[in-house]
Nucleic acid binder design. Structure first.
Lengths: 227, 227
DNA sequence: CGCTGCGTTGAGCTTCTTCAACGATCGTGG
DNA sequence: CCACGATCGTTGAAGAAGCTCAACGCAGCG
């Protein structure tokens, strides 16, 4: 279950020769995290960046009143905090383990050396940042232009796509975290799910969602209302 | 007024030798845009990316009902659509000129050749994407965790910072665009401004904002309420 | 078997949006 | 140079979506 990815299998470092990989790895530090443990907080100084080896992190912003907005989820082979390395400044968000997680701390200089050896690595990071940027654009669109029920419908379809286009989909997060991902609170999420269920579009049992009317679900996901 | 930036002054290409710069420039195409003209629409195929030489663009998402959310503003020396080059896929948003604007279309291959000549260019783009990512994180935070009045207060402070910490600040956009930037509509923005004015925090005359009580403004910007 | 935490449901309230009307401003053409 | 129309910004009233607070059911766990 706790699949651990080795550096040689990390797409970001594809292109590095195994000797360089070995050197890179030697300069990293392994950091084990338990569920709920904080990796860093918004405003912290960055000493390098992190690579998730196993488990999962949430990267989030929190409000003075305690509400949280998840910016993205980070899984095995994916980097966290690397943007600070490129642009400078302090960490713009916080990160916390959603389950038992192991990350690698990669010091700034070790990374720069790797890039010098193999410029292709920089291109991989460009691709990675670009993908994240696209994800953020979608998030902004959801928060600003879609209502909660539409976001949920869209997420179910997204999960269905990533989980093999089945009609059986598993939420990979508890309700509260799911709500933070959608930019809302558990109560509202609960009501949105209930609405989808009541209209016969999906069936919901705990974390399992069964898609009953895929077309209706698609309809809700991008138009929702009017037009 | 219409300051035009030359390629040699673009930070992204700092590091390129002038001969390489000349070659790069020779492979670009100049595209003049009038105010309101569309550069590309969400879903378009990208042939390369664009660099703004003069003027200003908005990059935005639009909803079926016609509302728009501005993702970012792009000025002289800044790139648009480059993320698609790195990550593939189609353009995730639309772009339109806010005023008379000239952009350079830089073909994918011309860019790749430049990077091959000078790997430092890749690092510059990493920094640029990272900054944009940070901006997007702030946008998400605003949309999800702050109310409109707080966003406006924050923006006024931001403008004050960028315009030299004066108490006299100029909105650089008409109301409607400003509203799109804040993720709301002109009516709501108008009321938010009115509230700030009524509490004596700022004074507003058309696009000019005079900060009357900077501390109160800061207070509104990050806490707003409770705690 | 009871405790604890998560998820759901209900009622009331706040914020924001919608729709409509109105005033001001600016550019244009007479 | 002025009058006109179009656009932009503001204001008001009503409605919708989402949030807060509180209570409750239920499952998992000690």
């Amino acid at each position: 279950m706790a699949s651990t990815i080795s550096l040689s299998a990390v797409p970001l470092f594809a292109g590095l020769r195994s000797s360089d990989l070995a050197e890179l790895e030697a300069r990293t530090r392994r950091i084990p995290l338990t569920r709920g443990q904080t990796l860093f907080l918004e405003g912290d100084e960055a000493r390098g960046f992190y690579l998730v080896r196993s488990g999962r992190l949430k990267v989030y912003k929190s409000s003075p009143s305690g509400r949280e907005q998840i910016l993205h989820l980070v899984g095995p082979g994916e980097p966290v905090g690397e943007a600070v390395m490129f642009a400078g400044g302090r960490l713009p968000a916080s990160a916390e383990a959603l389950e038992a997680t192991e990350v690698l701390l990669i010091p700034r200089q070790a990374f720069l050396d790797a890039v010098r050896r193999e410029p292709e690595v920089a291109m991989q990071f460009l691709a990675s940042l670009s993908q994240r940027l696209r994800f953020m654009a979608t998030l902004v669109e959801n928060l600003s232009l879609r209502e909660v029920t539409e976001r949920v419908a869209g997420y179910v379809l997204y999960l269905s796509r990533t989980q093999g286009d089945r009609d059986h989909v598993e939420f990979d997060l508890p309700r509260g975290e799911l709500a933070s991902l959608f930019g809302t609170i558990p109560e509202t999420l609960s009501r949105a799910l209930q609405r989808l269920a009541q209209e016969g579009v999906v069936e919901i049992d705990r974390r399992t969602v069964t898609i009953r009317d895929r077309d209706a679900l698609k309809e809700m996901a991008w138009a929702g209302r009017r037009l």
